[in-house]
Simulated assay, not measured.
Amino acid sequence: MQAEWQVPADHPAFAGHFPGRPIVPGVVLLDRVLWMAGRERGFTGWTVAQAKFLRPVAPAEMLVFRLMDTPRGALGFEIRCGDELVATGVLQQEVR
């Protein structure tokens, strides 16, 4: 699955992250990835097993989120801005 999201320039997270040089907090990006995984798979019990942030994201940037199946039943993800990789990671189903 792949989806685009333009970061709203007035996103509330920018108020304190960081004054004078706003960037999207990593938790906002992970929340979007988890939302996509739940929507795609009809299951909301995903957890972040691994995440790596490679560059900051500024207000109004257009991001492309991509989910990929892994051999062990997890979901890999990547977030790109144009040709640049912003973040990568792995989601796994929560064990209950």
Rank of each mutant, 00 (worst) to 15 (best):
W35A: 15
P8R: 02
W35F: 13
G38E: 14
R96F: 12
L91G: 02
I23M: 00
L30S: 12
P56Y: 06
M62T: 13
R72Q: 13
F43K: 06
V57F: 04
V7K: 07
D31P: 08
M1N: 09
G16W: 01
A3Q: 07
Q50F: 12
V90T: 13
R80Y: 09
A49S: 13
D83G: 14
V64Q: 13
M68N: 13
E84S: 15
G42C: 03
F43A: 04
E94P: 01
Q92R: 15
L34T: 02
D10K: 05
R80M: 14
G89V: 01
P56M: 06
E61N: 02
F14S: 04
D83A: 15
R72K: 14
A74F: 00
E94I: 00
E40N: 06
A58D: 12
P8F: 05
G76V: 07
G16T: 07
K52F: 00
T44A: 03
F53G: 12
E4G: 10
G38I: 13
A9H: 14
V57H: 05
A58Q: 14
F77A: 11
F43T: 01
K52Q: 10
V64F: 00
P71Q: 13
L63S: 09
D69Y: 06
R41Q: 12
E84Q: 12
V27Q: 09
R80W: 11
V7P: 03
L34F: 05
L63P: 08
L91D: 07
A37Y: 10
Q2W: 04
P12H: 07
R96N: 04
A3G: 02
P56R: 02
K52I: 06
W5Q: 01
A9D: 10
Q50S: 11
A74P: 03
P71V: 10
